[in-house]
Simulated assay, not measured.
Amino acid sequence: MDRTILLGIGALLTITLVTGLVALSKSGQARRLRERVVTAGTPDVRAVPTTGLPSIRLQTNESRPLLERILRFLRFNPDTPQEQLIPWWATLLIGAFAGLIVGYYLGFLVGRPLGAGAGVAIGIFVVRGLFSWQHNRYVMAIFQQIPDAIGLMVRAIRAGLPIGEAMRSVAAETSNPLRDEFARMLGDVAIGRPVDQALMRLYKRTELPEFSFLAVTLGLQTQTGGNLAETLENLADIVRKRVALAKRAKALAAEARMQAGILMVLPYIAALAMSQIQPFYIDNFFRNPTGQKLALIGLGFSVFGYLVIRWMIKRAGSD
């Protein structure tokens, strides 16, 4: 009973902490919006490099506040609520429930402190996994729409429309989720932000380098001039090849992911078969405390190995 109360208090404190962080991020987002409206039309000196051109470097060494670092670790972006299929509070409840269940059962085998710590770690891992899955799904949908969007801009420019009208045609004629992101980017432009800076903000929200390429292209064209339609057409061709390459890498990695799943479930299939052939082996294994600890250790190593394989496959695909 005391163990259950302790784990419940730990889960409640975890939910309260993460909920407070999310609420604080929401209030910070509203405050930044008010400041942006107040300072609309004023030049942002810090955002413009010395040469007047956007920087092509995608990573900077600027320091981030602690709250932003925590939300970034959880893969939760309060600036893009439309990417969340599951509401953030439901995701926190799922993570807390998973951590409570794991911590409760581990408390009987490894003790209360280790059980509570493992439960909190599992809860955070589940929350981060759900947020990451939703973010990756949203970003991949946008990534596949970028070549068609740039192609639409090229056709609009060749028809004689300015770049602003070409972007409005993308926001009007494309489907979600790219339509919402372009509409939000055009909203930034409407309140006085330059187009290249608005695109860089779009890059920071989605973490897609294609938007930074587009921002640099438009920034350079504004400063130097040239045939914008031809430049965007070349960029669309490059992005289209990147999309095809990403799909090919995903298809080639499907076999490795399948092998990783088979390696993970194979021991448990063998244990299930053994329970049907010689039931007393498995019964003694699970009734014995030592056997229960060994089963948990084996399950933990299986999950850890599967995650390591998935991480290696993802890194190889990104390279």
Results as ranks from 00 to 15, higher is better:
Asp2Glu: 11
Thr4Trp: 11
Gly8Val: 02
Ala11Thr: 14
Leu12Asp: 05
Val18Gly: 03
Thr19Ala: 10
Leu21Trp: 15
Leu21Asn: 02
Leu33Cys: 02
Arg34Gly: 09
Val37Met: 09
Thr39Tyr: 12
Thr42Glu: 13
Asp44Cys: 07
Ala47Phe: 02
Pro49Tyr: 02
Thr50Ala: 15
Thr51Leu: 12
Leu53Val: 06
Arg57Gly: 00
Arg57Lys: 06
Leu66Pro: 10
Leu67His: 11
Glu68Gly: 03
Ile70Pro: 07
Arg75Tyr: 08
Arg75Gln: 13
Gln84Ile: 06
Gln84Pro: 00
Ile86Met: 10
Ile86Val: 15
Pro87Gly: 14
Gly95Leu: 03
Gly95Trp: 11
Gly99Met: 03
Gly99Pro: 07
Ile101Gly: 04
Gly107His: 07
Leu109Trp: 06
Val110Lys: 09
Val110Pro: 08
Gly115Phe: 11
Gly119Lys: 04
Ala121Ser: 10
Val126Asn: 13
His135Pro: 00
Asn136Asp: 14
Tyr138Asp: 01
Phe143Asp: 09
Phe143His: 15
Ala149Phe: 06
Ile150Ala: 03
Ile157Gly: 03
Arg158Met: 04
Ala159Met: 11
Pro162Ala: 02
Arg168Cys: 06
Ser169Cys: 03
Ala172Tyr: 10
Arg184Tyr: 01
Arg184Pro: 00
Leu186Gln: 01
Asp188Phe: 09
Ala190Cys: 06
Ala190Val: 02
Val195Ala: 13
Ala198Ile: 01
Lys204Val: 07
Phe211Thr: 07
Val216Ala: 00
Thr224Pro: 03
Leu235Lys: 05
Ile238Trp: 03
Arg240Asp: 10
Val243His: 05
Ala244Arg: 09
Ala244Glu: 12
Glu255Val: 13
Met258Asp: 11
Gly261Val: 12
Val265Gln: 00
Val265Phe: 08
Pro267Gln: 04
Ile282Tyr: 02
Ile282Lys: 02
Asp283Ser: 12
Asn284Ser: 15
Phe286Trp: 08
Lys293Cys: 01
Ile297Glu: 07
Ile297Lys: 11
Leu299Gln: 03
Arg310Leu: 14
Arg310Asp: 09
Trp311Tyr: 14
Ile313Ser: 13
Ser318Phe: 00
